[in-house]
Design a protein around this nucleic acid. Sequence first.
RNA 1: GCCCCGGUAGCUCAGUUGGAUAGAGCAGCGGACUUCUAAUCCGCAGGUCGAUGGUUCGAAUCCAUCCCGGGGUGCCA
Length: 620
Amino acid sequence: MTHDPTTILHDRLMAAMRAALGDALPASAEPMLAPSRSPKFGDYQANCAMALGKQLGKPPREVAQSILDRLDVADIAEPPTIAGPGFINITLRTDALASAVAALDRPGADGDLGIEAGKPTSTVVVDLCGVNLAKQMHVGHLRATVIGDALARLHERLGYNVIRQNHFGDWGLPIAMVTGAVLSKAKTGQLELSRLTLDDLEREYRAAQKACDVGKTEMMLIRKFSLGPKIEAEWAPASEDGESASARARATLVALQSGEQETFRVWQRISEVTLEACFANCKRLQANVTAEATAGESTYRDELGTVVADLEQRGVAIESDGALIVKLDEFGINEPCLIRKRDGGFLYATTDIAGIRRRVQDLGASRAVYAVDARQSLHFRQVFAAARKAGYARTPSGADAALVHAAFGMVLGEDNRPFKTRSGENVKLSDLLDEAVSRAEAAVAEKNPQLSAAERRDVAEAVGIGAIKYADLSSDRIKDYVFNFDRMLAFEGATGPYLQYAHVRVSSILRKAQEEFGVDTQTISGAHFAIGSPEEKALALELLKYAPVVRASAEACEPHRLCGYLYDLASAFARFFDACPVLRAPDESTRDARLRLTALTGRVLGDGLHCLGIAAPHRM
RNA sequence: GCCCCGGUAGCUCAGUUGGAUAGAGCAGCGGACUUCUAAUCCGCAGGUCGAUGGUUCGAAUCCAUCCCGGGGUGCCA
């Protein structure tokens, strides 16, 4: 039997509504039960009477009264009251609140911390990270990695079978350009493959790209504005250089595609070097992105032809101007999805359609989430629609898989422009992490000088990385956000460190309880909850919200909801901490009750931070 | 041109299927430490929710039309 007051009150209200209104009750009617905004309105409020009053043409207060007349909640609540236009305010009985909180703490029918686990699982695929071959990770990847990993963790926590997909950009012409460049430099001994670094690769990538681009824009402008044969002739040699570089790249691509050994081996080595750095960054970010979760675009190379042929054959795709497109007017999208160029080449939409097909048909996803830049929004609308049109998004059971673009905004600098270094370069992710950690270390050294050097480093790592992650996750992901070390690492206010500090205070109390009184977690979990003070009550009510918040956060793919909740919880705990002495409580049973409340708060904070991928240290 | 996303306190942001007096944090001012780690807590002040109309018992939230900012828009990814 459940102890969750929300469930109980919901069901009782529903029953009372039926009894009061009978057949007149609209089928869609809901009690509209929600936690009250302010303690003066009770603990919960039901807002259904106003809506029902409107639908039935009766005064809302009358409707509320007739529901109350048939509402039986005496076992868990004080007598409900009607307020304002027809709000039903409900205050829980303290014994009911205590047993509800106790149920959270005791895995059972309500699950651990109120989250049911072990339900038959369905599969959710989360696209995240999205690094590119031969390129450093930068701030853009930060969001794709941090948000994607948090969404994966949220779903995992709810018992879904989660498959992460690091959609690695390791295929195509630009990739062939670097591969060709590295290959020739390796041959001449200018580069040693075994000592290849990501910095080498990035340098080669840029050089190769420049070599192919040379003269290109100039020639385009000369022709566009008809600047004459003389100027054209001046630029012709440069343009030819660019052309021949591009031709070499195309030749390399052909070699790569046909699996020519030497080229392939170099490409593999480049891939290895890139991913090694990527995994190191992810590990440091505490984002679970590994080799098993990485599926390069190259892994689709044999599927693209099949997919395109299938689409063409079934008339899903049609020819237009020599290209192959999927029209999407029926989805309200004017721009068709281009899946094959006039020259026969495939596009990134082609790969992404194949990606949906793989996720749903092969991996068995009933939900595919993409943590990708909001600028790709049209692209995903097109690709999702095209996949639906093709039937690739239909699961074996015949249901439509949910396709979700968890779009996020840009990271901005203080000037409200895209976050760049002073020289206009992308900021390397590893530099960003280094700086956050070193700033955190300075702060930790100042705040807690007793820590050993080794412990200080560990704490700084947890705090610095946690600060960046919380800052990234805590506002609505669709919005751009301004990156500011001072603000995210400021140890006051709604930050990662604040949450971690709350967790540390819990640990500290529990440690002392053990040291001073020999009270350990076993003993505590047997203690009775007694909700006395307003601070204890507020904390208890906050704890009850945890499970619904995790569910809503995962459902909407919005980690910021959990962030906001954890801040509220940490701050309810801080008020409790301030007002209610635990170890120096007036008597032993109060002490143990408070210890248990403290321990439970610590568990929820730790669990919540874990869902966000933020470390929860025991000291700081 | 068309499409998408934003606009809430000086700054950074929340705001559940429309609900009570629009909430936090920072910055400002004033309090609380022989500490369970003050990386905290309490109080004060701060608002034309971009604008105007509409829908209704009730709108930051829904509808319409504008304004401002950002992004995207058929052969790059």
